[in-house]
């Protein structure tokens, strides 16, 4: 469990980036953190792995108060994938990059092989292991850094903007990966601007605005909360917009639910006959 208790974070120059954060993330949970740039999302997740130390309040990671540990120590619990893969990669092959920390931690070779293979399988970079990471296309380089973190087998994984620049295949890999991690009881905390991705893959959503958490709720409640949408300056998924404009009830954000609602609410929609099909 990661616990943020009344946390305020200020930079050394005095600028306050987070105020009164209270948040509990349980094992095996999947949480999306949304909100405008500058809302404090990244500083907030950096509190969880001790890249930021709380100015006041406490952050407890599986019983460890981050104030009393180093970032490297906390990294055994919380893995963090940065937004830009190029600010991390330095080994000459993808395999070496994924194995680097495992060797650094002096794990035995059998364990290293197992962890590497699992991480590589989840991120779909099998074909690139022998390549120089810099020759791997940018969108896949992101998956290299994700594999690096997965191989550490931490109970908590933070992803910062994993969907940026990803195509449909990349999004599929991400969603399958998150499912697999959840099955293993590992938590995934994702910062993202992609609201369709949030609607499709997350039940719990934390919305941030002005350095604070303004809502911590289910995705459908968040996207149907006009105040949160305005304050966090987000845009709900199009399906939600349509349901709202049609005056439908039930906080619809998914296609299937919209189709169901339309077919139930207005029987008139159904014309019958197959002439409508292509």
């Amino acid at each position: 469990m990661i616990e943020l208790k009344d946390v305020t974070f200020a930079y050394p120059n005095g600028y306050i980036a987070n105020e009164n954060l209270n948040l509990v993330i349980n094992n095996g949970e999947r949480v999306a953190i949304i909100g405008q740039n500058g809302a404090g999302k990244t500083t907030a997740v950096k509190l969880m792995n001790r890249l930021n130390k709380p100015t006041t309040g406490d952050v407890i990671v599986d019983g460890n108060n981050t104030k009393e540990r180093t970032t490297a120590q906390i990294s055994a619990y919380v893995g963090y994938v940065f937004q830009n893969p190029d600010e991390q990669i330095f080994n000459s092959t993808v395999a070496m990059e994924v194995e680097y920390m495992l060797k650094y931690r002096k794990l035995d070779q059998k364990d290293i092989d197992r962890r590497r293979d699992r991480a590589v399988e989840l991120t779909g970079i099998q074909d690139y292991l022998k390549m120089n990471p810099l020759d791997v296309p940018y969108s896949l380089r992101k998956f290299i850094t994700i594999a690096v973190v997965l191989a550490m087998e931490t109970p908590y994984i933070i992803l910062d903007e994993p969907t940026a620049g990803q195509d449909l295949q990349g999004l599929k890999t991400l969603s399958n990966m998150m499912d697999a991690l959840q099955d293993e009881g590992r938590s995934v905390i994702t910062i993202t601007h992609d609201m369709e991705f949030v609607a499709d893959h997350f039940t719990r959503v934390v919305a941030m605005a002005n350095k604070q958490i303004i809502a911590d709720d289910t995705a459908d409640n968040i996207f149907w909360n006009a105040e949160v949408i305005k304050e966090a300056r987000i845009k709900e998924p199009q399906i939600g917009e349509i349901a709202k404009e049609l005056g439908l009830k039930g906080n619809i954000i998914h296609r299937r639910d919209l189709v169901d609602a339309l077919s139930h609410q207005k029987k008139a929609f159904i014309r019958g006959g197959s002439n409508e099909k292509e």
């Binding site: 950096k46 055994a76 893995g79 940065f82 991390q88 920390m101 931690r105 690096v148 550490m152």
Partner: peptide, 18 residues
């Protein structure tokens, strides 16, 4: 600025810099 981010990302990975 970049070196700060890199330092952070390597620390987050578990590399001791202190």
């Amino acid at each position: 600025e970049m070196s700060k981010v890199i330092l952070d990302s390597q620390r987050a990975r578990g590399i001791e810099t202190e």
